[in-house]
Amino acid sequence: MNSLLLADLQKILIVGMILLTVISVSRRNLISLINMYSFQSFILSLVILLIFFEDKKIILLYIALLTIISKCSFIPILLKRTQKSMKIHVDLEYNLFGPTTSIFISLLIFGMLFFLFLGIKEQLGANSLNYISIIFGMSMLFIGMLIIIARKKIITKIIGYLMMENGVVLLSIFIGDLPLLIEILILIDLLVLLAITSVLGFGMNSSVENFHVKLNPFRKWFKRVSEE
Protein backbone atom coordinates (compact mmCIF):
# COMPACT_ATOMS: atom_id res chain seq x y z
CA MET A 1 0.00 0.00 0.00
CA ASN A 2 1.34 3.45 -0.69
CA SER A 3 1.76 5.82 2.19
CA LEU A 4 -0.75 8.40 0.94
CA LEU A 5 -3.51 5.83 0.98
CA LEU A 6 -2.43 4.71 4.43
CA ALA A 7 -2.59 8.28 5.73
CA ASP A 8 -6.06 8.74 4.28
CA LEU A 9 -7.24 5.49 5.78
CA GLN A 10 -5.91 6.59 9.15
CA LYS A 11 -7.71 9.90 8.86
CA ILE A 12 -11.00 8.17 8.10
CA LEU A 13 -10.58 5.81 11.03
CA ILE A 14 -9.75 8.66 13.43
CA VAL A 15 -12.87 10.52 12.30
CA GLY A 16 -14.81 7.34 13.06
CA MET A 17 -13.39 7.32 16.58
CA ILE A 18 -14.45 10.86 17.34
CA LEU A 19 -17.90 10.26 15.85
CA LEU A 20 -18.39 7.36 18.24
CA THR A 21 -17.39 9.59 21.14
CA VAL A 22 -19.87 12.29 20.16
CA ILE A 23 -22.66 9.76 19.69
CA SER A 24 -22.01 8.29 23.13
CA VAL A 25 -22.60 11.70 24.67
CA SER A 26 -26.30 11.27 23.96
CA ARG A 27 -26.65 7.45 23.91
CA ARG A 28 -28.95 6.05 26.60
CA ASN A 29 -28.79 2.32 26.21
CA LEU A 30 -25.95 1.02 28.37
CA ILE A 31 -25.23 -2.10 26.32
CA SER A 32 -24.92 -0.03 23.19
CA LEU A 33 -22.64 2.40 25.04
CA ILE A 34 -20.33 -0.43 26.04
CA ASN A 35 -20.37 -1.79 22.49
CA MET A 36 -19.51 1.63 21.19
CA TYR A 37 -16.53 1.78 23.48
CA SER A 38 -15.23 -1.58 22.37
CA PHE A 39 -15.79 -0.65 18.72
CA GLN A 40 -13.87 2.57 19.25
CA SER A 41 -11.00 0.68 20.84
CA PHE A 42 -11.03 -1.69 17.89
CA ILE A 43 -10.66 1.25 15.49
CA LEU A 44 -7.84 2.56 17.68
CA SER A 45 -6.00 -0.73 17.38
CA LEU A 46 -6.53 -0.63 13.60
CA VAL A 47 -4.96 2.83 13.47
CA ILE A 48 -2.00 1.56 15.48
CA LEU A 49 -1.68 -1.41 13.13
CA LEU A 50 -1.64 0.89 10.10
CA ILE A 51 1.20 2.87 11.66
CA PHE A 52 2.97 -0.41 12.28
CA PHE A 53 2.75 -1.30 8.57
CA GLU A 54 4.43 2.00 7.80
CA ASP A 55 7.06 2.27 10.57
CA LYS A 56 7.74 -1.43 11.14
CA LYS A 57 8.30 -0.81 14.84
CA ILE A 58 7.50 -4.10 16.54
CA ILE A 59 6.43 -2.39 19.76
CA LEU A 60 3.41 -0.90 17.96
CA LEU A 61 2.21 -4.39 17.19
CA TYR A 62 2.34 -5.25 20.88
CA ILE A 63 0.35 -2.15 21.74
CA ALA A 64 -2.28 -2.99 19.13
CA LEU A 65 -2.55 -6.52 20.50
CA LEU A 66 -2.80 -5.28 24.08
CA THR A 67 -5.52 -2.85 23.04
CA ILE A 68 -7.53 -5.58 21.38
CA ILE A 69 -7.17 -7.98 24.30
CA SER A 70 -7.86 -5.52 27.09
CA LYS A 71 -10.12 -2.88 25.63
CA CYS A 72 -12.10 -4.81 23.07
CA SER A 73 -12.76 -7.90 25.13
CA PHE A 74 -11.74 -7.84 28.77
CA ILE A 75 -13.02 -4.44 29.88
CA PRO A 76 -16.34 -4.63 27.94
CA ILE A 77 -17.06 -8.09 29.39
CA LEU A 78 -16.32 -6.79 32.86
CA LEU A 79 -18.54 -3.76 32.32
CA LYS A 80 -21.39 -5.87 30.96
CA ARG A 81 -21.18 -8.17 33.94
CA THR A 82 -21.34 -5.23 36.33
CA GLN A 83 -24.23 -3.78 34.40
CA LYS A 84 -26.10 -7.08 34.63
CA SER A 85 -25.56 -7.33 38.35
CA MET A 86 -26.86 -3.81 38.84
CA LYS A 87 -29.97 -4.57 36.81
CA ILE A 88 -30.11 -1.30 34.92
CA HIS A 89 -30.32 -1.00 31.17
CA VAL A 90 -30.68 2.65 30.37
CA ASP A 91 -29.14 5.85 31.62
CA LEU A 92 -31.77 8.53 31.21
CA GLU A 93 -30.63 11.14 33.67
CA TYR A 94 -28.52 14.15 32.81
CA ASN A 95 -26.79 16.67 34.98
CA LEU A 96 -26.30 20.27 33.87
CA PHE A 97 -26.72 19.73 30.13
CA GLY A 98 -29.25 17.74 28.15
CA PRO A 99 -28.28 15.54 25.19
CA THR A 100 -28.70 18.24 22.52
CA THR A 101 -26.72 20.81 24.45
CA SER A 102 -24.00 18.25 25.09
CA ILE A 103 -23.60 17.50 21.40
CA PHE A 104 -23.53 21.19 20.63
CA ILE A 105 -20.87 21.75 23.30
CA SER A 106 -18.75 18.91 21.90
CA LEU A 107 -18.80 20.59 18.49
CA LEU A 108 -17.79 23.84 20.15
CA ILE A 109 -14.91 22.12 21.95
CA PHE A 110 -13.72 20.66 18.70
CA GLY A 111 -13.74 24.01 16.90
CA MET A 112 -12.00 25.80 19.72
CA LEU A 113 -9.23 23.22 19.96
CA PHE A 114 -8.64 23.44 16.23
CA PHE A 115 -7.79 27.13 16.48
CA LEU A 116 -5.97 26.89 19.81
CA PHE A 117 -3.54 24.33 18.49
CA LEU A 118 -2.67 26.25 15.36
CA GLY A 119 -0.30 28.19 17.62
CA ILE A 120 1.91 25.28 18.59
CA LYS A 121 1.56 23.25 15.41
CA GLU A 122 4.94 24.29 14.07
CA GLN A 123 6.88 23.76 17.28
CA LEU A 124 5.73 20.17 17.37
CA GLY A 125 6.89 19.68 13.81
CA ALA A 126 3.54 18.12 12.99
CA ASN A 127 2.33 17.22 9.51
CA SER A 128 -1.38 17.26 8.63
CA LEU A 129 -2.04 13.73 9.86
CA ASN A 130 -0.30 14.35 13.16
CA TYR A 131 -2.14 17.62 13.53
CA ILE A 132 -5.50 15.97 12.96
CA SER A 133 -4.72 13.23 15.44
CA ILE A 134 -3.65 15.79 18.06
CA ILE A 135 -6.86 17.77 17.63
CA PHE A 136 -9.00 14.66 17.62
CA GLY A 137 -7.22 13.13 20.57
CA MET A 138 -7.64 16.32 22.58
CA SER A 139 -11.29 16.56 21.54
CA MET A 140 -11.88 13.00 22.70
CA LEU A 141 -10.29 13.96 25.99
CA PHE A 142 -12.62 16.91 26.51
CA ILE A 143 -15.76 15.21 25.21
CA GLY A 144 -15.03 12.24 27.47
CA MET A 145 -14.87 14.68 30.34
CA LEU A 146 -18.19 16.11 29.18
CA ILE A 147 -19.68 12.61 29.44
CA ILE A 148 -18.33 12.29 32.98
CA ILE A 149 -19.81 15.63 33.95
CA ALA A 150 -23.11 15.37 32.12
CA ARG A 151 -24.17 11.79 32.85
CA LYS A 152 -25.31 10.43 36.17
CA LYS A 153 -24.85 6.66 36.15
CA ILE A 154 -21.46 5.41 37.19
CA ILE A 155 -21.12 3.01 34.26
CA THR A 156 -21.57 5.87 31.82
CA LYS A 157 -18.99 7.87 33.74
CA ILE A 158 -16.56 4.98 33.50
CA ILE A 159 -17.09 4.82 29.76
CA GLY A 160 -16.45 8.55 29.55
CA TYR A 161 -13.19 8.03 31.42
CA LEU A 162 -12.16 5.16 29.15
CA MET A 163 -12.89 7.22 26.06
CA MET A 164 -10.74 10.02 27.46
CA GLU A 165 -8.00 7.47 27.88
CA ASN A 166 -8.39 6.31 24.26
CA GLY A 167 -7.92 9.92 23.22
CA VAL A 168 -4.67 10.11 25.20
CA VAL A 169 -3.38 6.94 23.56
CA LEU A 170 -4.21 8.32 20.10
CA LEU A 171 -2.41 11.54 20.95
CA SER A 172 0.65 9.89 22.39
CA ILE A 173 1.09 7.50 19.47
CA PHE A 174 1.19 10.34 16.99
CA ILE A 175 3.29 12.91 18.80
CA GLY A 176 5.49 11.14 21.24
CA ASP A 177 5.69 7.39 20.90
CA LEU A 178 6.05 6.42 24.52
CA PRO A 179 5.66 2.75 23.72
CA LEU A 180 6.77 0.90 26.80
CA LEU A 181 5.11 3.34 29.12
CA ILE A 182 1.79 3.17 27.35
CA GLU A 183 1.71 -0.54 27.91
CA ILE A 184 2.05 0.04 31.61
CA LEU A 185 -0.53 2.81 31.53
CA ILE A 186 -3.06 0.46 30.02
CA LEU A 187 -2.51 -1.87 32.93
CA ILE A 188 -2.95 1.02 35.34
CA ASP A 189 -6.21 1.93 33.73
CA LEU A 190 -7.39 -1.61 34.11
CA LEU A 191 -6.49 -1.31 37.77
CA VAL A 192 -8.46 1.90 38.16
CA LEU A 193 -11.39 0.26 36.49
CA LEU A 194 -11.17 -2.83 38.65
CA ALA A 195 -10.99 -0.62 41.72
CA ILE A 196 -14.07 1.28 40.64
CA THR A 197 -16.02 -1.86 39.91
CA SER A 198 -14.98 -3.43 43.18
CA VAL A 199 -16.09 -0.25 44.92
CA LEU A 200 -19.39 -0.76 43.16
CA GLY A 201 -19.43 -4.31 44.44
CA PHE A 202 -19.27 -3.03 47.99
CA GLY A 203 -22.92 -2.13 47.67
CA MET A 204 -23.42 1.05 45.78
CA ASN A 205 -26.58 1.51 43.76
CA SER A 206 -26.05 3.04 40.41
CA SER A 207 -25.65 6.77 40.56
CA VAL A 208 -23.65 9.20 42.57
CA GLU A 209 -26.20 10.93 44.71
CA ASN A 210 -25.57 14.44 45.93
CA PHE A 211 -22.83 14.77 43.38
CA HIS A 212 -24.44 17.85 41.97
CA VAL A 213 -26.69 18.89 44.79
CA LYS A 214 -24.73 22.06 45.25
CA LEU A 215 -25.33 23.11 41.68
CA ASN A 216 -29.06 22.54 41.91
CA PRO A 217 -30.01 25.98 43.25
CA PHE A 218 -28.23 27.63 40.32
CA ARG A 219 -29.96 25.34 37.89
CA LYS A 220 -33.37 26.09 39.34
CA TRP A 221 -32.62 29.78 39.26
CA PHE A 222 -31.43 29.50 35.68
CA LYS A 223 -34.56 27.60 34.70
CA ARG A 224 -36.80 30.19 36.31
CA VAL A 225 -35.02 33.05 34.59
CA SER A 226 -35.17 31.37 31.22
CA GLU A 227 -38.87 30.57 31.64
CA GLU A 228 -39.68 34.16 32.45
Binding site: L178, I196, V199, M204, V208
Partner: peptide
Protein backbone atom coordinates in the same frame (compact mmCIF):
# COMPACT_ATOMS: atom_id res chain seq x y z
CA UNK B 1 -18.47 4.83 48.84
CA UNK B 2 -19.81 8.08 47.44
CA UNK B 3 -16.79 9.95 48.79
CA UNK B 4 -14.35 7.42 47.34
CA UNK B 5 -16.01 7.41 43.91
CA UNK B 6 -15.95 11.19 43.85
CA UNK B 7 -12.27 11.05 44.76
CA UNK B 8 -11.41 8.54 42.04
CA UNK B 9 -13.37 10.31 39.32
CA UNK B 10 -12.17 13.84 39.96
CA UNK B 11 -8.53 12.90 40.49
CA UNK B 12 -8.18 10.35 37.69
CA UNK B 13 -9.93 12.58 35.18
CA UNK B 14 -7.61 15.45 36.05
CA UNK B 15 -4.62 13.12 36.01
CA UNK B 16 -5.39 12.21 32.39
CA UNK B 17 -4.75 15.85 31.56
CA UNK B 18 -1.41 15.45 33.31
CA UNK B 19 -0.68 12.50 31.09
CA UNK B 20 -1.36 14.63 28.02
CA UNK B 21 1.01 17.21 29.48
CA UNK B 22 3.65 14.53 29.89
CA UNK B 23 3.22 13.41 26.28
CA UNK B 24 3.77 17.00 25.18
Amino acid sequence: IVAAIKYIFITSTAMLFSLVGLVF
